[in-house]
Design a binder for these strands. Structure first.
Length: 490
DNA sequence: TGAAATGTTGGGGCG
DNA sequence: ACGCCCCAACATTTC
């Protein structure tokens, strides 16, 4: 009888979980473990929304394991290695299995754990469960990392889309009742003030919820994704991001299921266009590729011209207004309130609110990135870093610095009927469409007829879009000739 | 996965 | 019939 630990981290699922499969294949006793080591030096501590999700995801995983005759052993402590050592001593385990993580601090931590365990004659085996293509497996012809999405994604697709590794186990060995575990509640992941009351309406954390979201997306609109994906007033996106972040579903499962649907659905006159959606999974791959190869970019711009960008310093009030959805610019406030109430924001709106913060308000992108990491249920260091550096124009393959969104124009294009704004900014819902996205342009009699007074019922805009745009262009002009990140050796 | 300024074209009103 | 102007629609350039 040999015993192994299956260490769950960002892979909170039973299907397509190669570490779990390998453990069950090679050992009679397999103990599923989750370690809560909140003090470990990682790049960012999961925010409140993320912790809410983790709580419910752990409950779901434990429930699934119990249904198979096993259970999740939860431990908390100062660091993961210490907890693993204790568990190894208690259980007599000879081997530890886990699926790899790719954030710089996680790589360093796992490397140290692996070598310590091997020094103690404990075997370690690790797997890829979280990405289609691990960062080192894709490179340019010269061996260097990609910096531009399109050639990166072409190189990925050339190697083929991977398929799922293994199915969920049918049943699992029971965990000896003498092995103690903490309850999820003792991890203290849930908020003390109940700001999360709206979350359950939007989300069902866990593997079942993830599978249901994927199926609903396939049934409801993957083929119209390309047309609808920019419309925050529709449910046109998959909303799989938090499930993917916590590994409740794998990108392999997503692309395989979507591809199988496309193969089935193709009939004369019907073309299942799933390529646009799968390309978005590719952006997630690209984000992880970039953070792996440029690990400093979660804090610092990749484009070194931006190292000395003249950001504003006295921005605390504007930042707070942005965070609270009180900028006076409706599409921005709608997005920030959606984020606060649901832990999520439509990606089109993420770009709009980011552009306003960074370019119109001249607030450093890191401040926006930190708020997103704290409030998003899909908070993910790699994806968040790519998104913010893209928006600020200082990243790889980024939006050019002169690309400044006009939130009024964007609202007109992507929320043409004003459904999204009215849902999240109800105090101006009575305004006619013509003025809904820019209440400050409404004639006095229109405001009066809606019983609306700017500055009383809804804020006056905190920035003048035209003036702040011109100022941003000037500031970006001032760093144009700074030394730029040297391109990769050709 | 921009927006605004500037340039060009062509239809229609009008003398 | 013709030139002239206006202006919407579209295209190109610039930031």
């Amino acid at each position: 009888m040999t015993t192994a630990l299956a260490w769950f981290r960002r892979d909170l699922r039973l299907s397509d979980n190669p570490a779990l499969c390998a453990a069950l294949e090679n050992h009679q006793n397999v103990i599923p473990v989750f370690i809560h080591a909140a003090d470990e030096p990682v790049a960012w501590q999961p925010g409140a929304a993320s912790r809410w999700w983790l709580h419910h995801s752990l409950v779901a995983l434990d429930g699934q394991l119990q249904a198979q005759g096993s259970r999740l052993v939860i431990r908390s402590g100062r660091d993961s290695l210490e907890c693993l050592r204790t568990l190894i001593a208690e259980t007599g385990a000879t081997q530890v299995y886990w699926n790899r993580q790719y954030e710089p601090q996680h790589i360093a931590r796992d490397k140290a754990i692996k070598s310590s365990l091997r020094d103690a004659l404990i075997e370690v085996d690790t797997f890829n469960a979280g990405l289609l293509y691990e960062p080192r497996s894709i490179s340019k012809k010269d061996g260097g990392p990609f910096r531009v999405f399109t050639p990166f994604w072409k190189a990925c697709l050339k190697t083929g889309l991977p398929v799922v590794d293994c199915l969920a186990p049918e049943q699992m060995p029971a965990v000896d009742s003498r092995i103690a575990g903490e309850s999820v509640d003792t991890l203290d992941l849930l908020p003390t003030i109940p700001w999360d009351s709206d979350f359950p309406a939007s989300w069902q954390p866990g593997e079942t919820g993830a599978q249901e979201k994927l199926q609903a997306f396939i049934d409801g609109g993957v083929t119209d994704y390309e047309d609808n994906r920019n419309r925050p007033d529709y449910a046109g996106t998959s909303m799989l991001s938090p499930h993917l972040h916590f590994g409740e579903i794998s990108p392999r499962q997503v692309v395989q299921t979507v591809s199988e649907f496309a193969d089935r659905a193709v009939q004369p006159g019907v073309i299942a266009n799933t390529e646009a959606f799968i390309r978005q999974i590719g952006w997630r791959e690209f984000a992880h590729h970039l953070l792996y190869h440029y690990p400093h970019t979660s804090n610092r711009p990749l484009d070194t011209r931006f190292d000395k960008f003249p950001w504003r310093k006295d921005y605390a009030d504007d930042l707070r207004a942005w965070q609270r959805g009180a900028t006076g610019i409706p599409i921005v406030d709608a997005g920030m309130r959606e984020l606060w109430h649901t832990g999520w924001m439509h990606n089109r709106v993420r770009m709009i609110v980011a552009s306003l913060l960074v370019k119109n308000m001249l607030i450093p992108w890191q401040a926006g990135a930190a708020w997103f990491l704290d409030t998003l249920v899909d908070a993910d260091l790699a994806n968040n870093t790519l998104g913010w550096q893209w928006s600020a124009g200082c990243g790889a393959d980024a939006a050019p610095w002169f690309r400044i969104f006009n939130p009024v124009t964007q609202a007109g294009k992507f929320d043409p009927h004003g459904h999204y704004i009215r849902r999240w900014v109800p105090e101006i819902a009575a305004l006619p469409n013509k003025y809904l996205a820019s209440p400050w342009t409404a004639p006095a009699e229109v405001l009066a007829s809606c019983n609306l007074q700017l500055g009383r019922d809804y804020p006056a805009p905190r920035v003048d879009l035209k003036v702040s745009r011109a100022t941003a262009l000037e500031r970006f002009q001032s760093i144009r000739n700074n030394p730029r990140t040297p391109p990769d050796p050709a």
